[in-house]
Design a protein around this nucleic acid. Structure first.
Lengths: 128, 128
DNA sequence: AGAACTGTACTATGCGTATAATACAGATAG
DNA sequence: CTATCTGTATTATACGCATAGTACAGTTCT
């Protein structure tokens, strides 16, 4: 069962998009694999304290992208080709990291300053 | 005059918040300083092809935070104390970078892999 | 078969974002 | 002084996100 335990919403970003990204990050990391089952809409909406329709919106879009497959009564499961996973990996690196690189540049950080900051933050945090 | 030339909107994030962040990043970098003038609401809205009310919303919030000051007929100017600038610097580092660190961890990147990726992206891009 | 789960669909409401159009007041350059 | 810039305020509309509630259909387990 795919875990949403360390999922926490970020101010200003739609929840359903963050849920999609959460699954994609799992795929990119390899911790989410083909055949894995996702929590039911009702269970997950109760766990995260969001509306069932919000979960449904995320799941529907994941299904439209061909990353999951749902059947009434049988739940939802991961159905992602290795090509799709590789594409997601590239996509996430690009959007997630490259924007931050641009931001750090705008904030005047030199490359080695940015590297130092990254190392420090990488050690500090204990999650994910 | 504060520049918005390399400003580009990002899908899913409110424009007015991005404009605020743009100014704050300039303050953090030191490229935006006390007394600097911001473009007029009308000019900037035309330049960025957004509604004047959207620019006004960003400027109003910047004024409420005490970072700028506006006078009818005289335009808007930066009025930020060094304490405010330092606080913004801390804030931006935390939100902007730390989220990406968490994301990279979720994607299964080890620290040195992340450092390598950062170095590569830092060289690639030519903006900011 | 029946209970209890599952996915799916629909209507309605509230809120924030962004747009459009208009109007008025203060400052400045001619 | 007058024109033209500036900021400020208001009303209205449209769309997306999230919520609430309800209903129906398919699967699974006992």
């Amino acid at each position: 069962m795919i875990s949403f335990e360390n999922f926490h919403s970020v101010e200003g970003v739609p929840i359903y998009l963050q849920m999609i990204r959460h699954v994609k990050q799992g795929l990119a990391a390899g911790t989410v694999q083909n055949g894995d089952e996702l929590p039911s809409r009702r269970i997950l909406s109760a766990t995260l304290a969001v509306n069932p329709n919000t979960v449904q919106k995320a799941y529907r879009q994941l299904e439209e992208e061909g990353l999951i497959q749902s059947r009434p009564g049988a739940g939802s499961h991961i159905t992602a080709s290795s090509e799709q996973v590789e594409h997601i990996r590239q996509e996430l690196f690009h959007t997630e990291v490259q924007e931050t690189v641009a931001a750090m540049k705008r904030m005047g950080l030199k490359k080695e300053e940015a590297v130092e900051l990254l190392r420090r933050l990488y050690d500090e945090e204990e999650e994910g």
